[in-house]
Amino acid sequence: MKILIIEDETELAQDIVNYLTNEKYLCEFAPDYQSALGKIYSHEYSCIILDLMLPGGDGLMILNELKKLNKQDGVIIVSAKNSIDEKVKGLRLGADDYLAKPFHLAELAARIESIIRRKEFDSSNIIVQHELSIDLNSKIVTVNGISINLTKKEYDLLLFFIGNKNRVLSKGALAEHLSGDFADMFDNHDFVYAHVKNLKRKLKEKKYGDYIKNIYGTGYKWEQ
């Protein structure tokens, strides 16, 4: 699957490329408006990460262009402005998601995963991980056909882990995923441990493999 990163900050774009590139994703990078347009005209992307402030043009114009070309590429707006007007404008022009800078790379990865899944599976949207299956429409999680009763936060965490397999997730990234924008209002994110502990326990009770590993001093990792 191909992902296009339209971002004028080369360093940041490179970090995103490094984080996302694996056996599943192939990343391309466009640092300005013109090169972004060129890539959009000539290729199809599963997901486009779009910074709105670009040298040479407004990122919103790229959304317009995609609409004109009738492209189905998923778009995540990544912006430093974090303004409601901009968010509403972007979503109205056909973007699928809006992520304010600064963000955790894990959060971006999880959102890309979610958009691609939405675009690829229209009716039956089920993730299967060995004996585990997650029905995204009905939000029912089953192990070997037996359903597990998860709280909303445990469910969100499970999806977040699966969207970031084999990557170390910091406590801060997990807290931000659960609390959104408000996580940085608080200094203590220990509650994350409780939720992960409960999730692990519930999966273990249903004899599901212990994939969530503790990483010393940092956080967790879904190893598979």
Binding site: L12, D15, I16, Y19, A80, S83, P102, V168, S170
Partner: peptide
């Protein structure tokens, strides 16, 4: 205001992403 926001948020975003990469 918007420019200031952009200018400051980008380096912060950069530090954040570097730490995310580092812990991998």
């Amino acid at each position: 205001t918007e420019n200031a926001s952009h200018e400051l948020q980008t380096p912060i975003a950069l530090i954040k992403s570097k730490i995310d990469l580092l812990i991998q």
